[in-house]
Nucleic acid binder design. Structure first.
Lengths: 73, 73
DNA sequence: ATTTCAGTTGTACTTTATGATAACCAACTA
DNA sequence: TAGTTGGTTATCATAAAGTACAACTGAAAT
């Protein structure tokens, strides 16, 4: 369906995963922090969702990093 | 209603405007470069649309800058 | 062996971004 | 004053994001 295949999204997803793992959080624990379902976190880290700025912002806040950090890949 | 009121979106919009003006492009000329209508460019620079990553990417490409530049505000 | 944990995937529903069209304002110009 | 240019705003259809739930896999623990 969606079949989004965007390299930038994958890179951002990897970066999020990287930052999440630095906090020793599982996808579900992290998802819970931002009231997400773990399923969506999975897709997000896999680069399968074309996130909006507000979603990126929520994620960066939960990771305690600046938004721009998500683009340092 | 949309009534998006997000400070980050405004900052990104301002940044886009800034970069666009450095190229001496009008909104409509710039919009044309990415097959946008000027109306959408206007809203985008005003921070009234919650852009997706692919939209940000299109904009950054048209501005000949890296995606991350849009977050340097 | 079965429970638990981490992550993935299918699906469904609601909300919103995308993108176009058109009408508008203000400033400038011929 | 009529026409052009740059930008804003309203509205609309369609595609897609946001979000949740459930079912699944594979590993690890007990």
């Amino acid at each position: 369906m969606s079949k989004i295949e965007n390299n930038t999204l994958k890179k951002i997803g990897k970066r999020i995963q990287e930052l999440r793992e630095l906090q020793n959080l599982s996808q579900q624990d992290f998802a819970a922090k931002i009231n997400y379902d773990k399923s969506n976190m999975s897709r997000l880290e896999a680069g399968k969702t074309n996130m909006t700025v507000t979603t990126l912002e929520k994620v960066s806040k939960a990771l305690n990093v600046e938004l721009i950090e998500l683009f340092k890949f």
